[in-house]
């Protein structure tokens, strides 16, 4: 395999540049396109009408406007477009949702109506909770890696992790895919999972440092260790990500529309996760480690004189 002889340290700047550019692109995109937030985080109503065939869209919109509602977006999905999704920016009360449901059933035969409606207050609470969840989970993970490994490895692992999470957000913003509550689950799953690859590689780095009896100080020394460790673990990293990718891809193709955002986010996150742990985390750690050692050495040589 070509990657087994690749010099990750020598070419590090290429990958650092790619990642920095992608991150900047994400920031830019968030400002320009923003995120397509679902009603989970804002407020309004989402109606899913399942029929046994594709419903005529104009007729559906006509029915809604007859009832006095302005639809914000109407899309169809499913294999035969049999699911019609209507978005309203208004929250509905009990009687309103009942009358919409009755009317749809009356106009389109015996269709199956699913509806969810969120008031602004609940949407805000949910967004707040989701943000807390991401921050708290990250803090716990940093603490754990710090305890099990060294601080610099914990730091680079978390940089790689934030890089992955942010890349998912970038893709969702650029492609304008709807962000719903399941998106948060996906991001958290990636946070928990992408760190695995990083940890497995660091694990090998730790072991190889112990095995090499030489005193390591230069970037060349650490670069050698890092390259060796990545070469040793790369098959495993790729294979494990493949085994998770298989079901994600089949879910993406065959799975329910309701979890589509979830599977897209996982797909993007898994690919980005394996990339960042191989090309970003380890080389970055080597660079930081050498800088740190050099600083300490400088301090030591200065101290006796003072």
């Amino acid at each position: 395999m070509m990657l087994k002889h690749f010099d990750f340290i020598k070419h590090r700047n290429i990958f650092f540049t790619i990642s920095i550019v992608l991150t900047l692109l994400g920031i830019l995109s968030l400002f320009i396109f923003k995120l397509n937030l679902s009603i989970d985080f804002t407020s309004g109503t989402r109606i899913d009408v399942t029929a046994n065939k594709a419903l005529p869209l104009t007729k559906v919109e006509q029915t809604m406007s007859d009832l006095g509602y302005q639809t914000e977006q109407t899309v169809q999905s499913g294999q035969n477009n049999q699911v019609t999704t209507i978005r309203l920016n208004k929250e509905l009360n009990r009687t309103q949702s009942a009358s919409i449901s009755d009317r749809l059933k009356q106009d389109f035969g015996n269709v199956d109506v699913s509806m969810s409606t969120v008031s602004p207050q609940v949407g805000r609470d949910l967004a707040k909770k989701a943000l807390y969840a991401v921050i708290i989970a990250s803090l716990f993970i940093i603490a754990y890696v710090w305890i099990r490994f060294e601080f610099l490895q914990g730091l680079t692992a978390v940089i790689a992790l934030i890089h992955d999470a942010f890349f998912i957000i970038t893709v969702f913003s650029l492609l304008h895919i709807e962000v719903n509550i399941l998106f948060i689950s996906a991001v958290l799953t990636i946070i928990g999972y992408s760190i695995n690859d990083t940890i497995v590689t660091f694990d090998r780095v730790r072991e190889n440092i112990k095995l090499s009896k030489k005193r390591l100080s230069t970037l060349e020394d650490f670069g050698h260790i890092v390259n060796q460790s990545i070469h040793q673990t790369i098959t495993r990293s790729i294979n494990t990500v493949l085994t998770v990718l298989f079901p994600v891809i089949t879910l993406l193709i065959f799975g329910s529309e309701s979890i589509r955002t979830f599977t897209i986010a996982l797909f993007v996150g898994l690919l980005c996760g394996v990339y960042s742990s191989i090309f970003i985390a380890c080389p970055l750690w080597a660079v930081l480690k050498v800088k740190h050692l050099a600083k300490r050495k400088k301090k030591r040589t200065i101290q006796p004189q003072s």
Binding site: D48, T50, S114, M115, S116, T117, P247, L251, I253, S256
Partner: peptide, 20 residues
Amino acid sequence: YSQSVGPQFGKDSMVQTLYG
């Protein structure tokens, strides 16, 4: 906040997801 799911919609989601 309210969410209501039609029985057919729920069943379809389950079958598709299990299949995939």
